[in-house]
């Protein structure tokens, strides 16, 4: 089976309910409840990634271990501030270096007043700097990170600039 199916099978073990059959465009519509977690196959030509994985914050490390075993590399970690839902979202992008192509986006949501996510820098050292940047911009705290200090702003800055309610 190709790499997309292989990854789906490997990830399905983490999520007890099977992947929802609703497509991402219908999500959030009238009768469809927002999904809690699961693996969705997305339209690569439109969205740029093959899989959309929504997981709980504590599952992030297990997902990273599965991706590492399947031979992915961590492309980027970003944060999104959903101010009206009072949540932060941390997005992980995984990709493959050579061979068959498959890009996987992993998302997790944390409450805005206490954003804590376990670190994956023990599995992917690339996460070290990316998590520092997400902490710098949003204030998301990555537990057990070896060196969680600011990376782009001055060390003594006391604000998190990319939050939606920040204006200097």
């Amino acid at each position: 089976m190709d790499i997309l199916e292989k990854t789906q099978v490997a990830l399905a073990g983490l999520f007890p309910e099977s992947a929802l059959s609703v497509s991402p465009e219908e999500e959030g519509g009238q009768d469809v409840p927002p999904r809690e977690s699961g693996v969705l196959v997305t339209n690569f030509a439109k969205h740029g990634s093959h899989l959309d994985v929504l997981c709980r914050p504590d599952q992030v490390v297990f997902v990273a271990q599965i991706m590492d075993r399947e031979g992915y590399f961590l492309e980027a970690i970003s944060g999104v501030d959903w101010l009206d839902q009072q949540q932060f979202e941390v997005l992980y992008d995984y990709n493959r270096l050579g061979g068959e192509h498959c890009r996987v986006m992993v998302r997790t949501r944390v409450p805005r007043n206490e954003p804590m996510v376990p670190t994956i820098s023990a599995i992917f050292p690339a996460a070290d700097w990316h998590e520092r940047e997400t902490f710098d911009f949003y204030g998301v705290h990555f537990q057990d990170h070896p060196n969680l200090i600011r990376i782009l702003l001055p060390e003594d800055a006391d604000f998190h600039p990319l939050r939606k309610d920040f204006m200097p």
Binding site: L153, F159, P161, F166, M167, P168
Partner: peptide, 8 residues
């Protein structure tokens, strides 16, 4: 970069 969001 001289905009109202300028913090740096």
């Amino acid at each position: 970069f001289k905009v109202k969001e300028n913090y740096n």
